[in-house]
Computed example of a mutant assay.
Amino acid sequence: MTRPVESWASSDATRASMRSNKGRDTKPELALRRAVHALGLRYRISRRPLKAVRRTADLVFTRAKVAVFMDGCFWHGCPQHHTVAATNATFWAEKVRRTKERDAETDRLLEEEGWLVIRVWEHQDPMQAAVLVADAVITRRGRFGH
């Protein structure tokens, strides 16, 4: 008989809260997708830009080689809005540090393969972010002849 794994969560309430966090289709991500779509662009959602790299972008423009990531302020350590966890502060600080490290590695790997990476913070205005994305995609499509 296997022993149950002890949870890292500090309480049942924390565990429930963490389980309810969605990995995709969050409100900020949906708002960005709607805004990009309204500008006439079509994209793939929740795709790996590079098949060999286990990293999923929120919006992918394959022909233009643009990968868009919607980063949550807490999870990705937003310099403006990140808050320090009151409970298990060391655990969460390390988790955010590793996430930022992984984000930088993802950006580097994609850029080495000719991709443009756009990172959007969840607090950014979706339409302003969509305009940045559209400008990048249209510019790169022109450069790649699409």
Score class of each variant (00 low, 15 high):
residue 3 R to P: 00
residue 3 R to E: 14
residue 3 R to W: 13
residue 4 P to V: 07
residue 4 P to N: 07
residue 5 V to I: 15
residue 5 V to E: 04
residue 5 V to R: 15
residue 6 E to H: 05
residue 7 S to Y: 05
residue 8 W to K: 14
residue 8 W to L: 14
residue 9 A to Q: 07
residue 9 A to C: 15
residue 10 S to E: 12
residue 10 S to N: 08
residue 11 S to V: 13
residue 11 S to D: 11
residue 13 A to G: 04
residue 13 A to H: 09
residue 13 A to W: 05
residue 15 R to Y: 10
residue 15 R to E: 05
residue 17 S to T: 14
residue 19 R to V: 06
residue 19 R to P: 02
residue 19 R to E: 05
residue 21 N to P: 00
residue 21 N to C: 12
residue 22 K to M: 13
residue 22 K to V: 14
residue 25 D to G: 06
residue 26 T to I: 09
residue 28 P to L: 10
residue 31 A to D: 11
residue 31 A to H: 00
residue 32 L to Y: 04
residue 32 L to V: 11
residue 32 L to W: 03
residue 33 R to F: 10
residue 33 R to L: 08
residue 35 A to N: 04
residue 36 V to L: 07
residue 36 V to T: 04
residue 36 V to K: 00
residue 37 H to R: 12
residue 37 H to D: 10
residue 38 A to C: 09
residue 40 G to H: 12
residue 41 L to I: 08
residue 43 Y to V: 05
residue 44 R to D: 09
residue 45 I to G: 03
residue 46 S to A: 12
residue 47 R to C: 14
residue 47 R to D: 08
residue 47 R to Q: 15
residue 51 K to R: 15
residue 51 K to V: 15
residue 52 A to Y: 09
residue 54 R to I: 05
residue 57 A to F: 06
residue 57 A to I: 04
residue 59 L to F: 10
residue 59 L to V: 06
residue 59 L to C: 08
residue 59 L to H: 04
residue 63 R to Y: 12
residue 65 K to Y: 05
residue 69 F to W: 10
residue 70 M to T: 09
residue 71 D to Q: 10
residue 72 G to T: 03
residue 72 G to H: 02
residue 72 G to K: 02
residue 72 G to S: 11
residue 74 F to M: 03
residue 74 F to L: 09
residue 75 W to H: 08
residue 75 W to T: 07
residue 77 G to I: 07
residue 79 P to G: 08
residue 79 P to T: 06
residue 79 P to D: 11
residue 82 H to Q: 14
residue 82 H to M: 08
residue 83 T to I: 12
residue 85 A to E: 06
residue 86 A to I: 13
residue 89 A to F: 11
residue 89 A to Y: 08
residue 90 T to A: 15
residue 90 T to N: 09
residue 91 F to M: 06
residue 93 A to W: 03
residue 93 A to T: 14
residue 93 A to E: 13
residue 95 K to M: 06
residue 95 K to C: 05
residue 96 V to S: 02
residue 97 R to W: 10
residue 99 T to H: 06
residue 101 E to P: 00
residue 101 E to Q: 11
residue 103 D to S: 03
residue 104 A to K: 08
residue 104 A to T: 08
residue 106 T to E: 02
residue 106 T to R: 00
residue 107 D to P: 00
residue 108 R to N: 04
residue 110 L to D: 00
residue 112 E to W: 02
residue 115 W to I: 03
residue 118 I to G: 00
residue 119 R to T: 07
residue 119 R to L: 11
residue 119 R to H: 09
residue 120 V to C: 01
residue 120 V to H: 01
residue 121 W to D: 01
residue 122 E to A: 06
residue 122 E to F: 01
residue 122 E to W: 01
residue 124 Q to N: 10
residue 124 Q to G: 01
residue 126 P to F: 01
residue 127 M to N: 03
residue 128 Q to F: 04
residue 128 Q to P: 00
residue 129 A to I: 01
residue 129 A to C: 07
residue 130 A to T: 00
residue 131 V to N: 00
residue 131 V to G: 00
residue 132 L to Y: 03
residue 134 A to R: 13
residue 135 D to Y: 04
residue 136 A to K: 05
residue 144 F to E: 13
